[in-house]
Nucleic acid binder design. Structure first.
Lengths: 218, 218
DNA sequence: CCGCCGGTCAACCAAACGGTTGATCGTGGC
DNA sequence: GCCACGATCAACCGTTTGGTTGACCGGCGG
């Protein structure tokens, strides 16, 4: 049985070296190539594809210092830009905010792991992804479960997107422009968000959303 | 000549593996031990010290998921808690906010590197630190220079106090009540804050203040 | 001693925000 | 097919915030 061929995508050389060292210790897993951002990842995938040695799994970070970010890259890989069939993309990142998780899943990621996960968990996730299954870190899975059991505060993806712009300090008009919708729609969304979060103004919404880790802050 | 003995401190197994792999490729550098947080780092340093094989350099991350953070750990190492003489501490982290850099330097760090630095830069930094010299990443050095030339306006204690209430989502009236001042005064303070932070509304002020770590959020 | 700065307050006006009602459209479930 | 729900937009209105101007006081440093 052939090894699972992995493409590493992370902007930190240190992390790539760590993953390479870690994965090469495991039976049945080989690091086929590395990329420092989403654009390079697409290029590498195409290259491997034309070589007749396509990657079986992409291990992708979400935050890239410069260049194409992980969510965008995942979407374009899944769109077939780097060859068909598109390989499963396993997200391996530092943060576990709802916003990140949802964006990744919507882009077509087949797993979401955290960088502080123990090595064996990462190994299992790579194997699962290669087998076409979904692999979620326990923390991430728990958060999703909580969301399902608790129908109280379920913000839609659009609302979370709005919340993120809100947190950057943009006014309603600016948010409307960013999202290509009218100011009226922004206000409607805000009212819904306030209701769901149990607050009555934008700063309080940001405060609550941050504490519930619905959105992330640095 | 003996190898430089390094203690790795990082909460991510992946990163520790990467640093270990990377450093062991270099001549003259040995990884003596690893720790997952500040507390473990102090314990490891003490252990190495009593073994008669003290670490020559500590490579320390700032953000630890749980346990003692890197700044605190650095301060306690420098205070001699893990044996005298205290080894140089080289910060190796992801973010380069002014507040982080200043806090690290104040705690006694002898260098500040970023995780996306090329391997050779990290190697040089370890060698410099071991030799008792200071090692700053070019980006970090540039930022410090910029600060000196262009000092940021300093927020008064009162203004920071206001910012903290602001960030909890309180309106001007509520803030006024909390601080036993009039609403008019709150507005005056806000205008000053906006000016100093270079913004023009409250949410943006919170955003900027958070990013500059003028105020804390979890 | 005098000026500067931080903190306090007031009055005023324009702009942004908050809240409501009501409406259309498309998707997905029953 | 119908209903629920999310997303979109409009018009309206009251409240809050933003921005300005001007003023007073107390401490600190030249």
């Amino acid at each position: 049985m052939n090894d699972i061929r992995v493409l590493l995508v992370d902007d930190h050389p240190v992390v790539r070296a760590g993953l390479r060292a870690m994965l090469s210790d495991f039976e049945g897993i080989t690091v086929a190539a590395e990329a420092a951002d989403g654009g390079a990842a697409l290029a590498e995938l195409s290259r491997l594809h034309t070589l007749g040695e396509p990657a079986d799994v992409v291990l992708m970070d979400l935050q890239m210092g410069a260049g194409m970010d992980g969510v965008t890259a995942t979407g374009r890989i899944k769109a077939g830009e780097a060859g068909q069939p598109a390989p499963p993309v396993l997200i391996l990142t530092t943060f576990d905010s709802d916003a990140d998780i949802l964006a990744a899943v919507e882009a077509g990621a087949s797993g979401y792991m955290l960088k502080d996960a123990p090595p064996d968990q990462i190994r299992q996730a790579v194997l699962s992804a290669a087998a076409g299954q979904t692999a979620l870190a326990p923390e991430v899975a728990a958060r999703l479960m909580g969301r399902i059991r608790n129908p109280e505060p379920v913000l839609s993806a659009r609302e979370i997107q709005l919340l993120e712009l809100l947190a950057t300090g943009l006014g309603n008009r600016a948010i409307a422009k960013q999202l290509f919708i009218s100011e009226a729609t922004v206000k409607t969304h805000l009212v819904h968000i306030y209701g769901k979060l149990g607050v009555d103004n934008r700063t309080a919404a940001i405060s609550v959303a941050t504490q519930r880790r619905i959105i992330r802050r640095f």
